[in-house]
Design a protein around this nucleic acid. Structure first.
Lengths: 155, 155
DNA sequence: CAGAAATCGATTGGGCGCAACATGATAGGG
DNA sequence: CCCTATCATGTTGCGCCCAATCGATTTCTG
């Protein structure tokens, strides 16, 4: 309440949503520097993370895991395929489905990505317990917001 | 540590940065619905917020306030100018500078934006004190990350 | 004061992110 | 069986986001 804009109804919430927006872009920028050597963008890195963790996945499963739709994933996966990091194959049992797998080259990239997370947390200057609390709070927000369609906001 | 990927060094930090990334996109999506009536995107809304709060600003000042560079702001401001919500004029005293001001139509939009913040906070289901704590934590992260160039990460 | 350096803003190019639409495949109800 | 609805993925179009670069000032400096 000590801020100059404390009496402006349009400024306060802005502080929260804007903080989120600014922090997200700042961290993505840091990832950009750290991932540059690997030739990955942050969303591409996320896709590789999921593949490293869970093995072969369909596009649909990737979409659910990352909250990204096919309009984003299709060209992104095409680029990663072009870079030789993953393969895309139509499922034999259901021709609608495309299965995505890391190639050997994609698997080998994993070792070079091991150090990235620690460096990011260090740069953010966050104690682990606070990072965990933050992660939980943000997860709850995402869940709440994605549940609600604007029509049903009840206050 | 109860998660299945608790022993995976690439999964834990991902939880934090990814939560941030996902939450930011979820909130932007909610803004998209609420701002659709006003004909604004979320970044455009942010520009109008700053103009409403602070009056005439240079592009440079907008850039600092929103942490956005001219590659983003130039076309965005052109669109808002085309929509009749603001004007751009070269400064008389320094021909390099462009001064941005809300038009009357832009000012009038403010009233219709008044209700948006509350609806967002409601949809996010956040008590005000937790929202404030979150905002401060995120602001600190942004400051830390923007201060550090990747070369200088010391751990 | 002339030339160099810094500043402001716009432009270009590549990659996200999402809505809307298109295509082909599968599943269910007559 | 068809016929329709649903589903998985892809494409298009628009706007954001940033790195790199450019052109036009201004400011610094010898």
């Amino acid at each position: 309440m000590a801020e100059a804009e404390g009496d402006n109804p349009l400024a306060l919430d802005n502080q929260l949503c804007f903080s989120l927006y600014a922090a997200s872009r700042a961290l993505t920028g840091l990832y950009r520097e750290l991932l540059g050597d690997l030739g990955l963008t942050y969303p591409q890195y996320l896709v590789m993370l999921v593949l490293w963790e869970r093995g072969t996945l369909t596009v649909k499963e990737l979409s659910r895991a990352l909250h990204l739709d096919s309009g984003t994933l299709s060209p992104l996966l095409r680029r990663l395929e072009g870079a030789g990091l993953l393969t895309r194959e139509r499922s034999a049992t259901d021709e609608r489905v495309v299965e995505v797998s890391a190639t050997r080259e994609g698997e080998e990239l994993r070792a070079r990505a091991e150090g990235v997370p620690d460096r990011v947390l260090c740069a953010a200057d966050l104690p682990p317990d606070q990072a965990a609390a933050l992660r939980d709070a943000l997860g709850q927000i995402t869940r709440s917001v994605e549940t609600v369609s604007s029509r049903h906001i009840t206050c």
